[in-house]
Structures are given as C-alpha cells and as structure tokens.
Simulated scan of single mutants.
Amino acid sequence: MRAVGAVGGAFVLALTATGCGLGADLGGKGEKIAIGIKFDQPGLGLKTADGSYAGFDVDVATYVAKKLGYSEDDIVWKEAPSAERENLIKNGDVKFVVATYSINEKRLKEVDFAGPYFLTHQDLLVRGDEVSITKVEDLNSKKLCSVTGSTSARNVKEKLAPKAGLQELGGYSECLAGLEDKKVDALTTDAAILAGYASQQQHWGKFKLVGLSLSDENYGIGLKKGDTALKGKINKALGEMVSDGTWRKLVRKHFSLSSYKSEPAPAIQN
C-alpha cells in the first residue's frame, strides 16, 4: 500500500474508522477506491493464502480502476457475497462491484450496471472420464450437486431434469470433493465459475465441462443507481479493454487450463 502524507493518511484512517467513505470518488493521486469482488471463486475472484487477490474479475476491476485514475495500490478490495452486493453499492461501501454479477431486471431496480463485460451460460461439470452425461436430461438418473439455495440447481431440478437427485452443500469446493469421490455425478452453476475450479492446478484433468448453455448470464459491473457519469467512464474503459487486446489476454490467462470455451466479448449496453 502506497504511503500518503500525514494529513491524507489521517483522513483515510478516519474514513476507515467510521466504516464509510472508501466508496466515494475522492479524486487525486494516491487516494483510495473500494471495489467489491468475490473472495472464494478461483479464476474469477479469489483471496489467496498469502492475502493477495487473483482472477478474471480482479484483473478487469484493476484495469477499470486504472482508467479511472487509480493505481493498483489505491484499490481496497471488499468481499462482495452474492446476497450483499446491492447493499454494498447502495450504502456506499464500494464504488462498484465486479463479482460474477449477472445483469437482470430484479437487480436493475436497485442498482445500475456498466457493461456487460462477459457472457457465460449455466453448465455442468463432470469427471474427466464421464461419458454418460452429454445433455441435461441425462441428470434424471444422476446425482446433481450445487450450493444451498442455488438458482442454477433449482433451474435444473424444477425445469430441466426434475428426477435428478439434487444434493445441496455449503460451497462449490464441497461439491467438487463429492464429484471427485463419485458421491455425486455433476455440479452445476455458471460455466465460468466451473472453469475456474477446473483450472486450479490440483484439479487439472480431473474434471470437464459438458458444454451446455442452460441460461445466458451477462456479467456487469454494478454501481449506484443514477450514477450515469461513472457508468459512462466504466463503459469507456471496458471498450478500451476489448479493443487493446487486454480482454482476450485475461480470458486466456484465467480459463485456458480447462475445457471452457468462452464467448466473444459481449456488446456494451450504453
């Protein structure tokens, strides 16, 4: 973290102590910007054992922040669990959220979105030697795993394969362990999330994506409702990220070690 002057340092400490202000656009070199990311999604947003942060969303957020005038050292990373993303934005705890944040009508009633910057689909992850699951209907005689309360799991269970044996666990890592131990036959969520887990070194070759498109998930950058100026700046940065080749490099960096085939960069909705 870069040193700041005594007055500036005291100001930042005061903001931290009150629990507010980090999301504000303070402006000026060396001041901070708080950004919400996932801390538990390999390949997308992960807080590593050494306390650093890695993933596609982390790199996208860092690129956008730099275009807004903030260095990497100026970023304060905030954990943004799915259920808390809108609150973090509305309360001003973060300036924006980059956290596998699918744009949908319900969320648009509470926050605005820049982007989208990534398009993925709900898919299935299976063992690398699995040959009996090639379509979603094959799950009707199989055991399916997802996290507790997952909309992806309900989508399969209620609409696509109602006879699937659904097991809901606390986290995707638990589902992966069950998949590896043959206690379940498939794991479902967004393909990009599945690919992140499959790309971890300890999982190389053990799992594969089936390659289905069970839903369209356009990831956007969430920001405060009505902040059209910030939305325009972020959209401009995202456009430059695609045009200068950075977007494609980041996709290769984070997803090339799995069987995931990403979609082209989606058109930004101004």
Rank of each mutant, 00 (worst) to 15 (best):
M1G: 10
V4K: 09
A6P: 10
G8V: 08
G21C: 12
G23D: 04
D25G: 09
I35N: 02
I37V: 15
K38D: 15
K38F: 13
L44D: 10
G45Y: 11
K47H: 11
D50M: 05
G55F: 08
V60Y: 02
V64A: 04
K66S: 14
G69N: 09
G69D: 07
I75M: 05
W77G: 00
A80D: 06
S82T: 14
S82F: 10
A83C: 01
E84N: 10
R85M: 15
R85F: 10
V97Y: 03
V97M: 06
Y101W: 02
I103V: 13
K106T: 15
E110M: 03
G115S: 06
P116W: 02
T120E: 11
D123V: 11
L124S: 08
R127I: 05
T134W: 01
T134I: 14
D138N: 12
S141A: 12
G149S: 05
S150R: 08
S152N: 11
K159V: 12
K159M: 08
A161I: 06
K163F: 09
L166V: 15
G171Y: 13
G171E: 09
L179R: 07
A191E: 06
A192N: 13
L194K: 11
L194W: 09
S199F: 05
Q201L: 11
F207C: 07
S213R: 12
S213D: 04
D216E: 14
K236R: 10
L238I: 10
G239I: 06
M241F: 13
R252E: 12
S256M: 05
S258Q: 05
P264Y: 13
A265P: 08
Q269H: 05
